[in-house]
Design a protein around this nucleic acid. Sequence first.
DNA 1: CGAGCGCCGTTTTTT
DNA 2: ACGGCGCTCG
Length: 808
Amino acid sequence: MTDASAPLVVGDTSQRSDDDLLAGLNPPQLEAVTYRGQALLIVAGAGSGKTSVLTRRIASLLRAREAWPSQILAITFTNKAAGEMRERVGQLVGEASRGMWISTFHSACVRILRREAQQFGFTSAFTIYDSGDSRALLKRLVKEHEADAFGLTPAAVQGRISKLKNELADAESYARQANMSDPAERIFVEIFGDYQRALQRANAFDFDDLIAQTVYLFRAFPQVADVYRRRFRHILVDEYQDTNHAQYALIHELTRPPVGATPEPYADSGMMIFEAPKHDAIGAEAVGAALTVVGDSDQSIYAFRGADIRNISEFERDFPGAKVVLLEQNYRSTQNILSAANAVIGHNFDRKDKKLWTDSGAGEKIVGFTGYSQHDEAQFVADEIEVLHKKDVPYSEMAVFYRTNSQSRALEEIFIRSAVPYKIMGGTKFYERAEIKDALAYLVAIANPVDEMAIRRILNKPKRGIGDVTETAIARYAEENEMSFRDALANPSAMGFGPKIQKALLHLDEVLVEASALMLPATGELAPPTAVAEGLTLLLNKSGYLDALRASRDPQDEARLENVDELVAVTREFARNNPEGTIIDFLTEVALVAAADDLDDTSGSVSLMTMHTAKGLEYDSVFLTGVEEDLIPHRISANEPGGPSEERRLFYVGVTRARKRLYLSLAMTRAQFGEVTVAMPSRFLQEIPAELIEWRQSPGDVNSRGGMQSRALNARKPGSWGGRRSENPPALAPRSTSLDKFPNRVPAKVRDNGEMELASGDRIRHDDFGEGHVDAVTGEGAKRVAHVRFEAVGAKKLLIKIAPIEKL
DNA sequence: CGAGCGCCGTTTTTT
DNA sequence: ACGGCGCTCG
């Protein structure tokens, strides 16, 4: 650990006034940087300079010697954001920034767990299972329990387990309150328990465990928790609106005052605890860490994975005496973009009204475009990108967003044809490719030999003639003899296999042994930085994996070979950046990369990504594509309580990423499941004042002209609409132009419930809030208000005439 | 045990 | 439209 080993900047730096830190801040920003107290909530609208405020706040704590670097824990949403923050703090305070913990929730928890794993039955070499890994494990368990007969698919089970873990429910606690007379429920409980035991046996945590188990650890071992409570005196959490319950609990545990009585200068795990600077009171042991959270409830877009908006809306209740600072001035976007964003988000009720503003002028109008097909739309985007590029907008300052990953395909096709350089962030991620997972499984097999999943994965890759029967036999032998799968595999002669299989297994064992010797140095010895790269190369060569790919005549295997080479290059790069990095460090880094953590962002390409991935990023020019009903808002969200509101926030996030130019595009038809369907413009377009948008081609244009000529080169593929039909698809038949002209037409159902009668005791359903029970009705005529208790979201007051409700 | 074929479900978002 | 998975046959 390098924690705090670097000295604070000395001499004039610390004496110097904070002018440079505070320069150019507006009053609320200033307050956010300089406020000192136990709890601070910074409500930071999009583009309000929150990163700058956070970094300056940290810098000012360090400069004033109110905290040592090692006493600061800053949680960001992505590793990339963490890196940027570290760099920016470094620019302000130099070397003093070393030793801070700036990382994501998951990275911070891994760090803690690696240190403390042996406290509760794991080793520090534990594996991190990504969703694919846990899916594979669950698949086996679901099969074993024949649970599919009860409608329990691996995906469904995985979803439920994830949700439960985010709520800090474990298998036992859930079992206690489950309805065990329901057979499906009983089997689910069994699978959950088996799953957890399998993880434990494999010395592995899944993503959700990383958080939840850290919380358990702190609760079960208060003296361990105390180590971290004493250590971190300032905790800062970004994107607080997207924290889930487990993360919230973790923060709570960390900000609690230490309970133990004996502060030791050196804690058990060898971590150094520094005494507080003497002129300050923060060393008082009874006080919990100061907490700063930054968030914007309008940008909460992760409810589907357990983010609980109440964490931020009830912050003041959770932390009495908390200070709240509002940052509303936007420094990113033009007023036109902000006005559009404000208008859209204003349609969400149940939100504190908050309006972004800027003093930098209206800027260009938002450009709208309606393509005939998704390819047509993509061609518009590609053409426009070229126009911008000729105007000296670098490709790296342009981004294309979409709601679902599958939409990227059409864009890619057209971009390739149009020679637009692009990179896709996230998507089918590099690390999810089969060949990469294979290669990583070899590494896991070295680092964590009890991880049976990893060994099973590589058992027959490349093909060694080892099939299901052999695999099961090894597993049974291992179980009978109470040894690990890895050890069983090492003496195949005991299992009565044929000579061919014995030879194959022995060879695999030899390769693994040899690689272990290379990559896992004896205790005390330091492995050379190149160990991971060399070990991986050795594994892939001697196992025959590369040979098999090379020998294959499947054209895709060539690409796979390149990908594996790329992974080897990644290990070399890792060695350069982390001279002391071990195989475990490498696997950790790889397991926790996020979609937005792109490796090279100086690549001079246009970025393509989902709107979710776009959160926290900003670009000069942004293309928001597929702005259609059933896409954004997504069809599936329509029936979920709070779904439509969350979709609106997602759209809002997309819009507010743009600094100067925003393009909103859609297609009139979209191919889905191989079928062409008619798309309707998104309701969110309606919510933007018409004068803000300049339509290059409005939905009305496309309709009334009876089909545009497709500009997409490949729109004439046989089987798609172009070839056969000379007439227009019937659904797009021309209509009268004037009334059709966009804004005022599309799905705009102005809501009017008329004289809907509601009385206390009625049950209603609300588009966003779900079902609820009417407690009372007050007011008269058009202003009658229903007081409703919703099952999902609690009590709300609704204007009966216009609320999106129906009586049940 | 492995290759080939046909069927099915897929597309919401992610650490 | 496509890929993944399971089934069947060699």
